[in-house]
């Protein structure tokens, strides 16, 4: 009898320990979720501020010079972060109610930012603003792959502004926005490239690159500025002072002729598809080869 009592006590201790472990784990997870919720509501506040900033930008559009406008309108990076967090939260914590509300605010901000960028393009024709509007739905297999494609586009051309909209979100503004492009009349996903070409169904990276041909040249320009900043320590160069032009001639080997304004002087570089070489050195090398 004593033996039995001892056993029962032992198992009671083990049982309560197991329950305690489970309790601790669940408490910890719910604590983590609470932290996440707080972070989401913080994001929401940021989105609200951005919305107001966007309003102001519209007002400024009438009088401010183009350069400062384009610089200032780059909500794109911030929006990116929110977008990534939204996607992650959507995939992992389906039970967070806060997400749906944040998504609405985010969609609203996207639409406003998109309209602003359209105005900017109108007012400042030289600006290299490119946009991709993307409509997706839940339970749409090609949409998943389209998401990967757009991530890849963002990786290759970070300055492209991608606006994605969940068409199934219970938010009438998205529907009216979609109606402008007759989104509902074809299959999903839907892409609107640079406000002009509408693509229904899965669109590959190559097709997008083909539809926005300027991307290739702009990529060289961005790489050029990056090269100047990182390799040659010219921190203060601005993309507006640089320019790159495709050199006609040799069909097989693509080469670009890039110029950077530095005070009075113009520095010239040649890009051969692999690296940037200052033009003078290039000539000397050629001479040496000739000798």
């Amino acid at each position: 009898m004593l033996m039995k009592k001892h056993l029962i006590l032992k198992h009671l201790i083990i049982l309560s320990l197991t329950v305690a472990i489970f309790f601790a784990v669940f408490r910890f997870v719910s604590f983590e979720n609470a932290v996440k919720r707080r972070e989401i509501s913080l994001l929401q506040e940021n989105v609200l501020i951005d919305l107001m900033a966007n309003e102001t930008q519209f007002e400024l559009l009438k009088s401010a010079p183009c350069d400062s406008l384009i610089e200032g309108s780059s909500l794109a990076n911030k929006m990116d972060e929110i977008g990534r967090k939204l996607t992650f939260a959507e995939n992992h914590d389906d039970n967070l109610e806060e997400i749906a509300s944040l998504k609405k605010y985010y969609s609203l901000l996207e639409i406003k930012d998109y309209l602003l960028s359209k105005e900017l393009v109108k007012k400042c024709p030289g600006s290299n603003i490119h946009s991709i509007v993307y409509f997706y739905r839940e339970h749409c297999e090609p949409c998943v792959r389209q998401g990967y494609v757009l991530s890849e586009i963002k990786k290759r051309y970070p300055w492209v502004r991608i606006y994605s909209f969940d068409y199934d979100l219970d938010f009438p503004i998205i529907k009216s926005f979609g109606d402008i492009y007759h989104v509902a009349e074809g299959e999903f996903p839907v892409l609107i490239l640079d406000d002009s070409s509408i693509h229904h169904g899965f669109t590959s990276v190559e097709e997008i690159e083909h539809a926005i041909p300027q991307l290739e040249e702009e990529k060289v320009l961005h790489d050029f500025v990056e090269h100047l900043k990182e390799e040659e320590g010219k921190e203060e160069v601005s993309i507006d002072d640089a320019s790159c032009e495709k050199e006609e001639g040799n069909e097989k080997q693509v080469s670009y002729h890039c110029v950077i304004k530095e005070g009075e002087r113009n520095e010239e570089y040649v890009f051969d598809g692999d690296q940037f070489v200052p033009k003078d050195e290039n000539r000397e090398e050629e001479k040496r080869k000739d000798d």
Binding site: K85, R145, V149
Partner: peptide
Amino acid sequence: SVGFSFDLPHLFSGSIDTFFFH
């Protein structure tokens, strides 16, 4: 969807946002 490529996970990119710890 996008062709073969191998990108390192966020862990190696330097900035780790706790938001992405699920």
